[in-house]
Design a protein around this nucleic acid. Sequence first.
DNA 1: AGCTGTTTATAAGGGA
DNA 2: TCCCTTATAAACAGCT
Length: 301
Amino acid sequence: MPRPGRNTYSDQKPPYSYISLTAMAIQSCPEKMLPLSEIYKFIMDRFPYYRENTQRWQNSLRHNLSFNDCFIKIPRRPDQPGKGSFWALHPNCGDMFENGSFLRRRKRFKVGSLQPPDPLGPSKPQDAAHFLQQQQAKLRLSALHAAAHLPPLPAGYNLSSAPPPSGFKHPFAIENIIAREYKVPGGLAAFSPAGYPLHSQLPPAWPHMYGSGMMDPAAPIGDYSAYGMPLKSMCHGQTLPAIPVPIKPTPGSVPGLPGLPAHIPAFLANSPQSLSPTSPQTGQSSPAAPGETLQSAVTVH
DNA sequence: AGCTGTTTATAAGGGA
DNA sequence: TCCCTTATAAACAGCT
């Protein structure tokens, strides 16, 4: 059993499904959309297990992207050459993970079979893609305004001024997993895990982590995702024990951390820094800035 | 040719 | 036991 530590995820298979891993990758970047190659890179950078047998798991991952309605495809613009489309999470899929745990979903996300229709987001894939297109345009516009020290945009465009969310976030929730990766001594990391620059004016990907007492309380607080709506908690809004317990506690739990499996990544157990043992995330260039595709016609499979 | 995306099929594991 | 979710494999088409 590997000892969880700063640089030890070891070569053990991570306790996340491909859907979870893909969602993590997508959520890790400010634009909330990534090309397939960047998703691969994200996973391989963080989980050494996936640096082998790439053909096998990448085939599975592609299968998941196509098969699951929670992922939507956003084509590149004609003037943004590159292979493949961008992949994003369906805005309404945030509720599909049980207790916010990415170990197993509560139910399979299916477009059109959503319980009460979400007034904040679309349900049809076409609508979702269009919705994402609009919201991400707002995100970029907001960032540009902030960078230029312009007055705040009208309501609906300023994505960083909303009240902080509330509610406990499961330790296996994607917010909790990813949020720590942005945290570096002295402030936020300059680059997203995917290598996209994180504009200093943008809220962190999972800002409520910082406002919930679990992270640096002095860090900025925001609330809105790139979708331009409050980040619906990945959890189900339930009250959870003071000491969070994974849905599927494993026999070998971390001493001192009841319920946490011993093989959880270092960043979940005790490290505020990146969990990547070998990849310092040095801002690799991406094939294209995802946000640049916003003007393109959006099609969804 | 290699990558990307879709589809079909099969099997294992867990929960109701 | 049945159903659902997930993992894996494979075939195929389209694109760069």
